[in-house]
Design a protein around this nucleic acid. Sequence first.
DNA 1: CGGATCGTTGATCAACTTCAACGGTCGTGG
DNA 2: CCACGACCGTTGAAGTTGATCAACGATCCG
Lengths: 193, 193
Amino acid sequence: MFEVLFTHVTEKVSLTDEEKDMIKTFFSPKKLRKKQYLLQEGNVCKYLCFVEKGLLRSYNVDEKGEEHMNMFAWEGWWTSDMYSFFSGEKAVINIDAIEDTEFLTINAAAFEEMTLKVPKMDRYFRILFQNSLVTKERRLISAVTHSAEEKYTKLAESNPKLIQRVPQNLIASYLGLAPETLSRIRKNIALRK
Amino acid sequence: MFEVLFTHVTEKVSLTDEEKDMIKTFFSPKKLRKKQYLLQEGNVCKYLCFVEKGLLRSYNVDEKGEEHMNMFAWEGWWTSDMYSFFSGEKAVINIDAIEDTEFLTINAAAFEEMTLKVPKMDRYFRILFQNSLVTKERRLISAVTHSAEEKYTKLAESNPKLIQRVPQNLIASYLGLAPETLSRIRKNIALRK
DNA sequence: CGGATCGTTGATCAACTTCAACGGTCGTGG
DNA sequence: CCACGACCGTTGAAGTTGATCAACGATCCG
């Protein structure tokens, strides 16, 4: 149950068996079937989630009712509405399952207690967030500076698994493109070969 | 010298006087005059910087030689090329001074040592990065979903000081707009009043 | 089998960029 | 201290990119 999590954590910090046992007590396993919600906007996000198996998506809905993909989380990824989770305010994003998914959850109080009892987890999350920041910064630069085709090409190069596993309209949304545009881009790329 | 830093840190974690004294030993103060570089792409980013006074900018340059603003850092903000700083790889961004600036620097080895000797700093940076992630995520959503005018209006509302303090062409670049476009947007907004 | 969902294609349209030119301001060197 | 050049913001005209609207075929699932 906790193999994926501990593999992931111990890549960044070493843990004793006692620490591992302690950490286990703060998490609860959960399952979600395809299309089920983990979080709907307007509710407070109660959990920080670590995916053991499957695929979750987070997205937000604008005033016009259009969905905008935010991030995908599969095996070995964390997801949550971090703002809502840490502040206790209402979430502005939605999270649901693209595939049947098994994951571990921790609530805010447990998270706080865990980091106080096992300070190495502060370090782990510091490093995790630090890496995420770098990634998010790159994506932001890419979103602002590249053409539609460049954005798609770079994503496909850096994350080919995503292209295979996620429906094309969600990829389009993730890149901030109309699904028709992405379809045409893929056609052009294929034609040029 | 360290007032701004400790004010900032103790908003997130409490520090004893001994811890403060310890932390001080890891930082070196530096100054930069307007237009001087702190970091040029291709070099390794040696410092994580905390601005005490003044204003720094980080940006990257694309293949066509065009600059794209990344972030601004004034009093109470950290800046660096985090990827380069933590990995030791070459930086892909540039950092220079918009105004004469005084700041504190810490190198990677000192950072590592500081977090090991004062674990609360892991916690501080965990919280700092966590908040930055939320901010960056919002900006990313905004970049993908909003029109040019909406992006500008939201930025002006959420960060009026930025508009006052930073030249308009840099704001345009930060939002991913041509400077002419921003000029026209501002004109339209003014006309509608 | 039937409905819903997804990807594709064509035509039109809107948003933003690019190129070019101009006036104002600031800083620097003669 | 003044003059000149550099830089910045503005405006107009034309060009491009990607969005939108509409229709259709394929596939998946109940």
